[in-house]
């Protein structure tokens, strides 16, 4: 039997009429039309479908949409603000943290949640945090570097901007602290 349900995605309420067996990832992609979240393995293995549920990274292929009713979901579309890439997106770009890009939305969400919780994670901690997200292209090196660079940028932005940092520092300061 279909049910009407409402949940918040990237701060916007979305209502859909779905069967209880509708997985959250399909609700996000098909009901909400947000196709940034990918379906990868469909077996709770790869993490391509990672979204934040009330701020915590989870596999949206392993959660029924009805379970998320009334909760706050953040997808990769929720990272950039007003045309400005999130510092983590910028760092993935600059550090070449992707090749085919299929795992990237999931990696970004896991990385963003990590940096929200731990502004200065060590390499080991980063590797542990992304151990539920598979990448078959990069060998992870540049992904780890990108998360480290984003951490630096976000910490820099959180501290008062010194005269030497100039406009770039101010721009990342404006983005800082906006991780959903």
């Amino acid at each position: 039997m279909k049910r009407e349900l409402t949940l918040t995605i990237n701060g916007q309420p979305y209502t859909g009429v779905v069967e209880p067996r509708r997985l959250l990832v399909h609700f996000i992609r098909e009901e909400a039309g947000l196709t940034g979240t990918h379906v990868g393995c469909d077996t709770t293995s790869c993490g391509a479908c990672t979204v934040l549920l009330d701020g915590r990274p989870v596999k949206s292929c392993t959660l029924f949409a009805v379970q998320a009713e009334g909760h706050a979901v953040t997808t990769v579309e929720g990272l950039a603000r007003e045309g400005e890439l999130h510092p983590l997106q910028q760092a993935f770009w600059e550090q070449h943290g992707l090749q085919c890009g299929y795992c990237t939305p999931g990696m970004l969400m896991t990385g963003a949640a990590l940096l929200e919780r731990r502004p200065d994670p060590g390499e080991e901690e980063i590797r542990r945090a992304i151990s539920g997200n598979l990448c078959r292209c990069t060998g992870y090196q540049n992904i780890v570097r990108a998360i480290q660079e984003a951490a630096r940028a976000m910490r820099g932005a959180a501290e008062p901007v010194s005269a030497g940092q100039g406009a770039a520092g101010a721009a990342s300061a404006a983005r800082g602290g906006m991780v959903p």
Binding site: T44, L53, V58, K59, T62, T110, A129, G132
Partner: peptide
């Protein structure tokens, strides 16, 4: 499992 599964 992995950190994502552990969150649920």
């Amino acid at each position: 499992a992995d950190p994502l599964v552990r969150n649920l």
